[in-house]
């Protein structure tokens, strides 16, 4: 049975570097995608991603498992994103240079259609207000519940639930457009 995240973080807190390796391996991909889709620029995402983990390392001494480690991690991530958005005047960054992955569909026509559908979805996701997109990503990518989203973003559950519902509705509309 794998050790829970909270146990690993406590082990790292007491100097077990191997515990951090495991923890990082578990969360690196999801956190990276969360940040990448939140800021939409790879270079910025990488910088933020590194800063978030550095913050985790620095804050290890104060870590107490009062909530899930995931919630704590994404709270740190949220705070970094907020700082990032503040620096950019709370404006959304366009989806410049974001390449969509090629489909495995062998039929060129179907492949083109799939790519278009995916592009529409990506555009819809991109067009979401930052807080709604964040709520969606926390839910979809990171597996946080509404309560955990509220905790990570410093809002209440009603607000988190509302943002998530708006985001889902807009994405659903983008899917149906095709």
């Amino acid at each position: 049975m794998e050790a829970p995240d909270e146990e690993l973080m406590l082990a790292y807190k007491t100097g077990n570097a191997g515990a951090f390796d495991t923890l990082y391996a578990r969360h690196r991909t999801r956190l990276y995608r969360f940040v990448l889709r939140a800021v939409k620029a790879r270079a910025v995402a990488e910088e933020l991603f590194q800063e978030i983990w550095m913050r985790v390392i620095e804050a290890r001494g104060r870590y107490t498992p009062q909530a899930r480690f995931t919630t704590w991690l994404y709270t740190i991530a949220h705070n970094h994103l907020v700082d990032h958005w503040r620096k950019r005047g709370l404006t959304l960054v366009a989806l410049d240079g974001e390449e969509l992955p090629a489909s495995d569909d062998p039929d060129p026509a179907d492949a083109a259609q799939a790519r278009e559908a995916l592009a529409r979805f990506a555009a819809a996701l991109d067009a979401l207000p930052a807080l709604q997109r964040e709520a969606f990503l926390l839910h979809e990518e990171s597996g946080l519940s509404v309560a955990e989203i509220a905790a990570a973003t410093g809002s209440n559950e009603e607000a988190a639930k509302s943002r998530l519902r708006y985001a889902m509705a807009k994405l659903k509309a983008a899917l149906n457009d095709g």
Binding site: E46, P101, E141, L171
Partner: peptide, 10 residues
């Protein structure tokens, strides 16, 4: 559809 966006990794 979200999963289809891709599997970026750091």
């Amino acid at each position: 559809r979200y999963r289809a966006l891709g599997g970026e990794e750091p």
